[in-house]
């Protein structure tokens, strides 16, 4: 049955691969993160822990570098050699960028990570065999590996009651990463389908965007021209599927990290602004 399926769909599959993935997307979930508003408070990160059943690994494993932070706030300093910094830090919320041409996808030997018709990089936990090649090939280093089973250590009774039943608790040996809260997407899409309508912008959002106290994170569907996120992308003249943006106004703040690698990230950052005139 399945062999037949492969044979029949072989040419379609091949063309699909040549065209760089799906021809038609149902949605293109994307984000816009305004770095001028990011205050580095970690609310998004903790919200992610709460929503996505992330394991707390504890200090010993943290020291080894085995921590899980699907959403992490990176903090950088300017390199100038001053006695004191004269402005604040540079905060960067970093999570899976759901690349349109993701480098993690082609290298997985079992196709556990693949591109969905929503433009997301799916990670199918139960298919993953833990070769960890995807993580090695991720320029953003946002894939996290379950080096242990965390059932007892991370969720001692009754903490396991908090676990979100809408997504798996990953076992040892499985790679995981930010999914743009696919469980929320799934619920919203199911609901929309049952009500025979399209998913509305703002109907749901990711846990990080929902928590963000300064609303720095905007999540939405760039296929929906009316959505807030596509307005922002348009406003900042950031287009997809290019490795270099050609903007009419080059001063517009939108940019994508590691765009030059031609990975087509789905997260647009807005440059940090610092008022040096005060």
């Amino acid at each position: 049955m399945s062999l037949k399926n492969v044979m029949e769909n072989w040419s379609a599959y091949r063309k699909d691969a040549e065209a760089g993935g799906h021809h038609t997307y149902e949605h293109r979930w994307a984000m816009s993160i305004n770095l001028d508003l990011c205050i580095g408070c970690n609310a998004c990160s903790t919200a992610c822990y709460a929503e996505n059943n992330l394991a707390v690994v504890g200090p010993e494993r943290f020291a080894k570098g085995q921590a899980m932070h699907w959403m992490r706030i990176e903090r950088y300093w300017d390199v100038e050699d001053k006695e004191y910094p004269d402005q604040g830090a540079s905060f960067l919320p970093m999570m899976c960028q759901q690349c349109g041409a993701a480098t993690c996808e082609p290298v997985c030997p079992v196709a556990a990570t693949y591109h969905t018709p929503d433009g997301l990089n799916a990670q199918v936990y139960n298919r993953c065999i833990g070769s960890r090649y995807c993580s090695n090939n991720c320029p953003f280093r946002v894939r996290y590996f379950n080096f242990y089973s965390y059932y007892e250590s991370a969720w001692p009774e009754p903490m396991h009651l908090q676990l979100n039943p809408d997504l798996s608790v990953r076992d040892k040996g499985v790679m995981e990463k930010c999914t743009f809260c696919v469980q929320r997407i799934r619920v919203a899409k199911d609901k929309a389908k049952i009500e025979n309508r399209k998913v509305k912008d703002g109907e749901f959002t990711t846990a990080c965007a929902q928590a963000c106290p300064t609303s720095a994170i905007v999540f939405g569907d760039t296929m929906d021209p009316e959505s807030k996120v596509s307005m922002l992308w348009k406003q900042h003249q950031v287009t997809r599927a290019v490795y270099k943006q050609h903007k009419e106004d080059p001063e517009l703040r939108g940019y994508r990290i590691f765009e030059e690698l031609n990975v087509d990230p789905s997260v647009m950052y807005l440059e940090r602004v610092r008022d040096t005139t005060v």
Binding site: R61, K64, G65, Q66, A67, G130, R132, S135, R141, Y144, F145, N146, F147, Y148, S149, K172, G173
Partner: peptide, 10 residues
């Protein structure tokens, strides 16, 4: 135990 004891990391 998983790959943790090997000290591989992120």
């Amino acid at each position: 135990t998983g790959l943790g004891p090997s000290n591989l990391n992120n």
